[in-house]
Design a binder for these strands. Structure first.
Lengths: 111, 111
DNA sequence: TTGTTATGTATAAGAATCTTATGTATGTTT
DNA sequence: AAACATACATAAGATTCTTATACATAACAA
């Protein structure tokens, strides 16, 4: 990641949401996609990404499929069935989190 | 904290924002305030709160003032000058963070 | 051709933040 | 008398991340 500590804990949710949207993606592709979407503000480091992917796979939330493209290895990840269900939960948690943070920071508004 | 990992990294920002708003607060009061604002969804644990307060104080962002109320000790914290400046930075980072997360999770909408 | 950048994955050491458990102490309610 | 609320504190361990390093291929620039 980059910058503030705020992103701590959100990497798994980001990965799963992107996979839900794009079907299958490989690690490097995820870093580039995130960088593009956030206009360069969020840079996922390999040291954070790969262990996270391996853990999600070990938990049965992701399936992996190795391909060779241009003589370079790619490991494509996609959500398992249980991964899709868990993605729904995580997104719901993220909505609650954002709502709560806005309530704390912006107490004048109603949410 | 409670629940999802998402809150990891946001505790300092929460503390500083509450202090900015309320002038001075003591630890237990902060936990109760957060619980009330989030309608019970976010429970800050003492094991997270007190070390965080001590660290912010050590960094010169908070000042402490001890009072005895009803024969019980209270440590009131308030922002220092540099703490107020830093609070502005953290709130700005939080806004960026929320905006980026919404872009990632809700790519259909414009932000 | 040699160095740098981009693509692509991986791990290990250490930092930072948190959970869980425990400890101390007083006041209030059951 | 026991449980709960108020009030602070720390220590052990878990989790997540940063930083650094490693390997490998391809493209591009000096």
């Amino acid at each position: 990641m980059k910058n503030s500590q705020l992103y701590k804990g959100s990497l798994n949710t980001i990965i799963m949401k992107l996979l839900e949207e794009n079907g299958k993606m490989y690690g490097y592709e995820i870093t580039q996609k995130v960088k593009a979407i956030t206009q360069g503000e969020l840079n996922i480091t390999e040291g954070a990404l790969y262990p996270a992917l391996h853990k999600l796979e070990a938990e049965g939330l992701l399936d992996v499929e190795i391909e060779k493209v241009d003589n370079r290895m790619r490991k494509y990840y996609k959500l398992t069935e249980s991964g899709e269900k868990e993605t729904m939960n995580r997104l719901s948690e993220l909505e609650d989190f954002i709502r709560n943070m806005q309530s704390l920071v912006n107490p004048k508004l109603e949410f």
